[in-house]
Design a protein around this nucleic acid. Structure first.
Length: 376
RNA sequence: GGGAAAGUCGCAUAGUGGCAAUUGCAACAGACUGUAAAUCUGUCCUCUUCGGAGUUCGGUGGUUCGAGUCCACCCUUUCCCA
């Protein structure tokens, strides 16, 4: 994998670059739609490519391991063939499930045992088998196995968790370096910086991950409930330390505002379930603010969903119709909202990139953030 | 004409002497950040300084300390027999 920086903002840390992977190029900063089980919920691959202009999507090791299982994916020739996406993919390691499945998992130094959320069966994830599984899934970017710490998280817990995550990283890297891709193309491994909201732990975590010459670095354990300012503060601290010539990925972030601020702080990659999940729950993000499409005020608003939207659904359908679909619990509502939100997110990062290259990102960003926070 | 059953907060339901009154739907809001989420939460008779206060269960009377619940009559609806 290659990363080339095209330009850096004069008045903040925003960067525009290009990541080259075996499945194609990714222009950064980029938002990566989440497709946990190998599918971006409610959105077909053609729409993802042609309407949304997605360049890379996520999959999840834990979910794909449980279903359909790595055998099937291997028989298909890797995840990009299995889901017909055939473009860059990234798999999360299951580290987030260490956090989100808190009640049905147990962490040890060795790894983490999970109860399947599907049938309750017991499964053990270790840094080694998580790398093996990600090799079998075949994403271009694999994530190290970590513990995404909860918030609030006391210092002692964060410190101990970071110790485990660091040990796991060492084992992940070791396994990564002693295995080869199954499908003949290069796969990268991104370490994850943890350390909760503690500056010294984060600094220590950054220095720890930097000892490995990996293709990119991620910030994890943020946007889990901490104050937004804290998230920015930690992000800023980390991007000051992490190597400039490698992509930085802020995991699980976030709102459109979070993404623009993240870009200003030197982040290149983002992913979040928000555009799809909130879309399914009737929330639309637009350049003028957010809308709850279930609200009565849209009942007879026959204006386009988003006049300035880039997806065809934005001008094809009206707000009143979309509200009707949500109220009637029609599956089409979820699809339209997901397409709109993802197209908006991808439009947003593309604009950000353009303004970074043009050199006026910072002022544009401030203007946008103000608008994005509105409630329509 | 004769007989039977039933009328509860938008709709549908629960309730057979201590209830502002069950549940579902609908309605109206809110939440959602590396997806156990097409999910979850709240409001849903009126007013409220959120402590409460005031009016309710087809209607009118009555029994009772107390009635959606018991009694009488009336009104309405449904079904059955002529």
């Amino acid at each position: 994998m290659e990363f080339k920086l095209n330009s850096i903002s004069p008045d903040c840390k925003a960067r525009a670059g290009v990541i080259k992977t075996a499945h194609g190029e990714i222009e950064t900063p980029i938002f990566m739609p989440v497709g946990t089980v190998g599918s971006v919920k409610g959105v077909d691959v053609n729409i993802l490519k042609n309407e949304i202009n997605a360049q890379i999507i996520l999959g999840n090791t834990y979910h794909l391991y449980l279903r359909p299982g790595t055998d099937i994916i291997q028989q298909a020739g890797g995840i990009q063939k299995f889901n017909s996406w055939n473009k860059p993919m990234l798999t999360d390691s299951g580290g987030f499930q260490v956090y989100s499945l808190g009640k049905i998992r147990k962490i040890t130094n060795e790894g983490c045992t999970f109860r399947s959320h599907i049938d309750g069966s017991l499964h053990k994830f270790t840094p080694e088998n998580v790398i093996d599984t990600q090799r079998k899934i075949g994403a271009d970017i694999m994530m190290a196995f970590d513990e995404c710490t909860p918030y609030p998280c006391d210092y002692k817990y964060a410190q101990n968790s970071l110790k485990i995550t660091s040990q796991w990283l060492k084992r992940c890297v070791n396994r990564f370096e002693n295995t080869t891709p199954i499908y003949g193309y290069h796969q990268s491994l991104f370490p994850i910086v943890q350390g909760s909201v503690y500056n010294d732990l984060r600094k220590q975590a950054c220095e720890n991950v930097m000892q490995y010459d990996m293709d990119g670095f991620a910030l994890g354990g943020l946007s889990v409930g901490e104050p937004t300012e804290k998230m920015y503060e930690i992000t800023n601290l980390c991007t000051d330390i992490l190597p400039k010539e490698k992509p930085r990925y802020l995991m699980g972030v976030g709102t459109p505002q979070n993404i623009l601020e993240g870009i200003a702080l030197g982040i290149d990659m983002f992913d979040c379930v928000m555009p799809t999940r909130n879309g399914r729950n009737a929330m639309l993000f637009t350049s003028e603010g957010t809308m709850n499409m279930r609200n009565k005020k849209w009942a007879n608003d026959f204006s386009p969903i988003d006049e300035s939207g880039t997806a065809s659904v934005d001008t094809l359908y009206t707000k009143a119709y979309l509200r009707h679909l949500f109220i009637s619990q029609e599956i089409l509502a979820l699809e339209i909202a997901s397409i709109h939100n993802l197209a908006f997110y991808l439009w947003l990062v593309k604009q950000a990139r353009k303004h970074i290259i043009d050199g006026d990102f910072y002022s544009w960003k401030n203007e946008m953030v103000e608008k994005l926070g509105r409630r329509l």
